[in-house]
Design a protein around this nucleic acid. Structure first.
Lengths: 334, 334
DNA sequence: TTGAAAGCGCTAACAG
DNA sequence: CTGTTAGCGCTTTCAA
């Protein structure tokens, strides 16, 4: 591993000059020949700057962390891609970290000085206090699709639009009896989706309070909620599920109970992942701008590191888009 | 952010003493009172060592990278957990990184000095040369479930046992016409699984060459392979799929073609994930010791950092275990 | 246009 | 048992 000093020696200059050349120091007057010699030397020695020294000197780690509840959730694929994209432009690395309720603390995960900032998604079962605790970290944090009293800096999705899109799709198909399987209780995004459902479905007589089932973001919770729904006296003809994985669980429970989907029951969910088209029937989803949100969150973070203020942003472009598949159809006439 | 110097000042000692106390330096004779004063001061100031300085001084990053082709694949959940567990014991952090064919290079991802070592899984479509290129990194690397000529340091699964377990399950159910949907062409694990299938199925007259379909690790490839299989003149009564996501795709394609699973066709796959039990019918799988493998890989890496040699290891304990679910049944008598 | 020198925060000889 | 000192590799004044 070549050191800067060696590059300088080979080029016959001092380390400072080498440093200036290799960092493209703007306000530096370097003789073209010197510059070239340094560049050649660096190439010849395959010089790669030492991140540790550079980080120490600059008080800057050159990396940000994307912290999610469950790394393996396909939901995050495009979020991650968006964050990566912005990071590449800011020549920063992205570390993905998984923060779980009983695991290592965020501080432990990202240490002191390992990253310059954090994009944090609230895990299931994490209330405001615990979230606040996680944020007691010495780097700026942008929250993803969640907000917290007293914290500025978040990027959210248009949860209301997502639910509206889903409900409108069902209404257009002719449904008038629509249920809702909600997300994790403590999550404000879940609350927003639920409020939107109450507004556009329940308030319009398309749903009933007992058809609104609390659940969570994952498949088992979705399955349990569906089972509870099917146990009711009167069944809806369609259900909106607040997240894809829960929808996979809900679909599984419905089929296991002998319900014909979409014949007896249509299912539409929020978030598009590869999985949606590989369950049977394939799930109709509302695709959310996860890539754009990831890009926006990372960009906000980098701009903040450059001096700008953090703020709270809702990503509305591209708008939520319905992806119609086999799990929704017109209600069967009875 | 309190510095070590401030802690030392508050405790009325020199930075070196403070350092020794806070690092539990074994061969250091510190007066109990002094020690206590330092500890108190550190607590009072909420001292957290600066990773950058420490990394520079110790030439050690205190972190390892787990590099996988697709971060969001549920397969990696328990692998990641195993790696985390070992890392916690060695007070190291784990960074998860995604290495894709046309994305940032591994060197770019982990930088110079950001991590002390790497656990690397071969991505789909990466041949030996490209893999070798990725390994030209200045830190030790342990390969996961792949090996490479000239590279020592790998942890693999018992691919043969997995396939044998799957085939035996089908044979026990009475199947005599078994197909195989293979993994990614360039992947040696795929080759091992396929060789095992040839040995225990084809060679025993339970399969035919044309029932062995090349595919890949992901759902679309599995779906395509199933479609090809169903287009054949004679159909098998069961199929072993080399990976779970491909099996989800294969199942989807079979159902879409109107095939009754498991009535007309049983499906069994390798690797257990949450998804397996939430497709319909739920997939019978062979659970592999991913957690143990993650633990082993990280442990090997840390021991190597401590001076031990890297070696090539096959994790056979716990043994692959069949998890019977709805996608397999006795063949229908015709 | 270039070089010398200081120092980021920490640890590890080496002295005392 | 404790303090002094040097230096990890880099960037950046400041002086030449």
């Amino acid at each position: 591993m070549a050191r800067l000093k060696e590059v300088a020696q080979l080029a016959g200059v001092s380390p400072s000059v080498a440093s200036r050349v290799l960092n493209n120091d703007a306000g530096a007057r370097i003789h073209p020949d010197t510059r070239q010699r340094v560049l050649d030397a660096a190439k010849q020695l395959e010089y790669v700057p030492d991140h540790r020294a550079r980080a120490l000197r600059l008080s800057r780690a050159g990396a940000i962390a994307l912290v999610v509840p469950e790394v393996n959730n396909a939901i995050f694929a495009s979020l991650h891609a968006g964050v990566q994209e912005a990071s590449l432009e800011h020549s920063s690395a992205v570390f993905l970290a998984q923060l779980v309720h009983d695991g290592p603390s965020l501080n432990r995960l990202i240490g002191n000085g390992r990253v310059d900032g954090v994009i944090l998604q609230r895990s299931e079962g994490v209330d405001d206090d615990e979230l606040r605790g996680s944020l007691s970290v010495d780097v700026p944090a942008v929250l993803f699709n969640t907000t917290l009293q007293g914290h500025t800096g978040s990027v959210s999705l248009d949860d209301r639009a997502a639910v509206v899109t889903a409900v409108e799709h069902l209404v257009a198909l002719g449904h008038e009896r629509i249920a809702f399987i909600s997300g994790a209780e403590q999550h404000d995004a879940a609350a927003r989706r639920r409020a939107a459902f109450d507004e556009v479905a329940t308030a319009r007589g398309l749903s009933r309070p007992e058809w609104v089932q609390p659940a969570g973001w994952e498949a088992p919770a979705g399955a349990a909620a569906m089972t509870a729904l099917l146990a009711g006296a009167e069944r809806p003809t369609a259900v909106v599920v607040a997240s894809t994985n829960a929808a996979v669980g809900a679909l599984s429970a419905a089929l296991a109970a002998g319900v014909d989907v979409p014949g007896e029951l249509s299912i539409v969910t929020v978030h598009e992942t590869w999985l949606a088209q590989f369950v049977s029937p394939a799930l109709t989803t509302v695709a959310m701008p996860m890539h754009a949100a990831g890009l926006a969150a990372a960009t906000m973070l980098f701009e903040h590191l450059g001096g700008a203020e953090l703020h709270d942003l809702v990503v509305t472009d591209p708008a939520p888009e319905l992806v119609a598949r086999g799990s929704t159809a017109a209600p069967r006439r009875t």
